[in-house]
């Protein structure tokens, strides 16, 4: 097997908050091969955004390694880091905050081209900017050259953000809730555009979202990783995860989502949780952090031992004692009670 383009090995990240240590990401490992797509899904505070920031090098892990093509990005030499820096780009959530209000669209898109000498002259730059705008389906490009971000709609701004990331021909794009803030009628065309990029340009996508339906649509041929309170609880191929979720948290999420179809949503089976309250990151429960709410909870097991992510079937990795036992696997061993 070839080297994964992005690999996280035992990555954790802590923050200090009110003199207490908050573990935003706890021992997360996964790898993505070139051209693949993975969606990080979870509720607020699950660590998905922090993970995205570590993948894109905006945050340094407290422990563990983030590797680009097999090399730890924080141990790279200048040359290697530069290559990584341009190869992995991030698209932010808020199209209103991610473009500099003082610059025209042309300037926003041409600055990286000129700075990195990806174009020979002004004419070439214009041609390339036009091409990029066509790639993100903004037309006619010339009409937008002299516009300022505030003159564009949310969907158009988000497309410009994508075009800006594409200026440096990245191999990996981390998209953090990239479609969450645009209107529903625009969302699908934006997603379709990103899907096209993935297919046509072979860009590897790490797609972060709170919306499982969007994740399903975007990563049907890839994988979804579900995170809960800083840990990855399930990482499976999308159709398996959607149709046959193994972790009780994944299952609870899927059953709780209201569907835009009255018959479907009114007949859906709902899973009752033991408690509606999410534990605080400042005071995480011992063992499996989901045990306080989990319908499968077993005393003496789930509240004592931290389950590690384990492959239960090919392409189905789950961190749950009960699910593992159903597959004849025990996850109890090296774990601890913090």
């Amino acid at each position: 097997m070839s080297t994964p383009i992005i690999e996280l090995a035992g990555v954790s990240r802590t923050f200090e908050q009110r003199r207490k240590i908050v573990k935003a990401v706890d021992n997360v490992s996964f790898s993505v091969n070139e051209g693949d797509v993975i969606c990080l899904v979870g509720e607020s505070g699950c660590g998905k955004t922090t993970t995205g920031k570590m993948v894109s090098g905006l945050l340094r892990p407290s422990s563990g390694e983030v590797r680009y093509r097999g090399k730890d990005i924080w141990k790279m030499n200048k040359e290697e880091f530069r290559e990584y820096r341009l190869a992995v780009q991030l698209i932010h959530q808020d199209p209103y905050a991610s473009l500099n209000p003082a610059h025209t669209i042309y300037r926003i898109l041409s600055a990286p081209l000129i700075h990195h000498k990806l174009v020979q002259d002004e004419n070439h730059a214009r041609e390339r900017v036009r091409e990029l705008m066509r790639t993100v389906e903004i037309s006619p490009p010339d009409d937008f050259f002299d516009k300022y971000p505030h003159q564009l709609s949310g969907g158009q701004r988000q497309r410009i953000s994508v075009a800006r990331a594409l200026t440096v021909n990245p191999s990996v794009i981390v998209a953090d809730e990239a479609v969450s803030m645009v209107d529903v009628s625009i969302r699908i065309s934006l997603l379709a555009m990103l899907t096209k990029l993935m297919r046509d340009l072979g860009v590897t996508f790490i797609f972060i979202t709170h919306d499982l339906a969007v994740a399903k649509y975007f990563a049907w041929e890839g994988r979804i990783a579900v995170m809960y309170l800083g840990r990855m609880v399930e990482l499976s191929r999308t159709p398996e995860l959607i149709n046959n979720p193994q972790h009780p948290y994944t299952n609870a999420l899927l059953s709780a989502i209201p569907e835009a179809d009255p018959r479907l949503t009114r007949t859906k089976e709902r899973i009752q949780l033991r408690s509606p309250d999410v534990p605080s990151l400042l005071n995480l429960p011992p063992g499996c952090t989901f045990h306080t709410r989990c319908p499968l909870y077993e005393e003496g097991l789930c509240d004592v031992h931290v389950p590690q992510l384990q492959e239960l079937e090919p392409g189905v990795d789950v961190a749950c004692h009960v699910a593992a036992r159903r597959h004849g696997i025990s996850l109890v061993g090296e774990t601890s009670n913090r």
Binding site: S153, G155, Q156, D183, S185, I186, R187, I188, S189, L191, A192, L212, A213, V214, K216, Y217, W220, I242, L254, I257, E259, A260, D261, L264, K268
Partner: peptide
């Protein structure tokens, strides 16, 4: 998009609000 079931085709509305 719905989360239950197989992938169904989604069609977007062209243009802006």
């Amino acid at each position: 998009p719905t989360v239950t079931g197989e992938l169904r085709e989604l069609i977007s509305i062209p243009g802006s609000p």
